[in-house]
Simulated assay, not measured.
Amino acid sequence: MADADSQRSLSALLNGITQRVYHGNTEITEDFLKNELYPGMTQDEFRVLHDKMGSLLKSIASADMDQAQLEAFLTAQTRKQGSSGLNSDQAAALGRFWKAHRSRVRESLVAQSHWEPGLKGLRWRVDLHTSASKGTVANNPVALVELEMGRTGEKSEFVCLEFDEQKVNLVLKKMAELQESIDSIVHRS
């Protein structure tokens, strides 16, 4: 039973570290985690455990380790001597935790690494221009494109573009050239 409690506490510690570091939850502090999960441990003992788990999570997350890489990494950590290594229960808990949380941690890291606004949405339609600027009737088809730009959680900005048939053809030609360039690079490697 003590092993199960130890595994749950370690999993909760890893979750707390992840919530604070990767998801920005400032309510979860080191003192909160110690008092809730390891009240019988001294502050120094807890800090060593907390820092070790935080460091291991950082290494695993920054490398975005898949299952094979994680197993090799954890095996190396269990072979280390002294307080810098992991015991097999800690390695197992860390492995289970990473398997369950890898995608969310990765999404968070990707979101944190975007400095510029990104494309959040795109809408388009084709309309007819019914009049020209001097009052003459034109009846030319135009493509109207609305781009939604912004960062997650922030207010979006919209950019509206209007393309006539020639500009649509030019954009399609440039996109085809770009695809050819990408294909040539991919096929070379």
Rank of each mutant, 00 (worst) to 15 (best):
K155Q: 10
K134H: 14
G16L: 04
V159H: 12
R79I: 02
L56E: 03
K174L: 14
T130E: 11
M1K: 13
E71H: 10
K155H: 02
K58R: 13
N25M: 08
K80V: 09
H50I: 06
E71Q: 14
L86P: 03
G121F: 07
G135H: 01
V168C: 13
L49D: 01
L14H: 00
G40F: 05
L172R: 10
W124R: 02
E157R: 15
Q19R: 11
E107V: 01
G85L: 00
A92P: 01
P39D: 10
E45L: 10
K120D: 01
L128F: 09
A93N: 01
E157C: 07
D127A: 14
K174G: 07
D5V: 00
F73L: 01
L170N: 09
F32I: 10
E71Y: 03
S156T: 07
G40A: 11
D183E: 12
L109R: 11
E162Y: 07
E30C: 09
L57Q: 07
E27K: 02
E27Y: 03
K34D: 03
A132N: 13
I28N: 00
M1Q: 12
S88N: 14
S103L: 13
N35K: 15
E177S: 15
D127Q: 12
V105H: 06
L109K: 09
P141G: 10
R106Y: 03
E45F: 04
I28K: 05
E71D: 14
E180M: 12
A2G: 13
D183K: 07
T26R: 10
E146C: 09
G16Q: 05
T78K: 00
L109Y: 10
L14D: 01
P141D: 08
L109Q: 12
R188F: 14
A2T: 12
Q90C: 00
